[in-house]
């Protein structure tokens, strides 16, 4: 049997009217690897995530997950295959208590299938998950509606919600944005713990120092093109990357 990489992105292109937001992007990601995607604002990072997760249809090229073409599938089908994502701006179900936000994904057919046909006590699983991402267990926080939670908790809730569908590939779109230094340093171990569990990661991030501690490999986007790929150290040495970030002299 042929062994496929977990994710193959092949010549992916996305046009918005006359604007080419993604220009023939290709990369592969193996099981258990962690990939960072960086680039200046407007370079196409979030568009790339939206195309991979099915929220946008590509103009050209394709995405394969475990060898199966997923571009053109709806977001709900891609999610059911085990591709979890967070949104850059936290998008919880504001009128539900934090833990109920997780009960919705815990009801998904995927979770039941992985659990061998049983859901278990979803409320308890939800609270465990929240604890895993740093909600205090013995407090009222998990029972408060998402609308009153502070930003730091909402970001963690995003992470927990994506984890609730038991993803094989987790895409984190600027998880650290808007978090304080202390919050970031308490979130990094949570992500390292996920890596230890074998979850494959894609992280879009502007906080490069923290990102480079976590990921094995980085790709750099600028104006929709991939301008560099390599280890964090290699990428930062690249002339193109310096130019993109600092402007040409």
């Amino acid at each position: 049997m042929e062994v496929h990489p977990l994710l193959q992105v092949q010549e992916l292109t996305k046009d918005f009217g006359g604007l080419r937001a993604l220009d023939r992007i290709s990369f592969t990601l193996n099981q258990g690897e962690s990939l960072g995607i960086i680039g200046p604002n407007g370079s196409g990072k979030t568009t790339l995530v939206n195309v991979i997760t099915g929220f946008l249809r590509p103009t050209g090229g394709r995405v394969r997950f475990r060898g199966r073409t997923i571009s053109g599938m709806g977001p709900h089908r891609i999610a059911r295959l085990g591709l979890g994502r967070t949104f850059q701006m936290a998008r919880p179900f504001y009128h539900l208590p934090a833990y109920k936000n997780l009960v919705i994904p815990l009801f998904s057919p995927r979770v039941r299938r992985l659990a061998g046909g049983r859901y278990g006590d979803r409320d308890a699983v939800a609270i465990d998950l929240l604890e895993e991402v740093g909600f205090e267990r013995d407090s009222f926080v998990p029972f408060k509606p998402a609308s009153v939670l502070p930003h730091g908790y909402l970001k963690r809730l995003e992470l927990a919600r994506a984890l609730a569908i038991r993803p094989e590939l987790l895409i984190l779109d600027e998880l650290f944005s808007g978090l304080s230094m202390a919050e970031v340093s308490s979130t990094v171990p949570i992500i390292e713990h996920l890596q230890a569990q074998g979850i494959t990661l894609i992280m879009i991030e502007h906080r490069l120092r923290e990102l480079f501690r976590i990921v094995d490999r980085v790709i750099v986007l600028n104006f929709g093109r991939k301008i560099a790929e390599g280890t964090p150290a290699e990428v930062m040495e690249s002339e193109d990357v310096k130019k993109a970030y600092l402007g040409s002299e």
Partner: peptide
Amino acid sequence: TRLGLAFRGIAQDEHTAMCLGIHS
């Protein structure tokens, strides 16, 4: 119920619901 919660999910944020595997 499962469907009821899916209803509330879609009602509150369609995109989030979709990325949790709910068929909008």
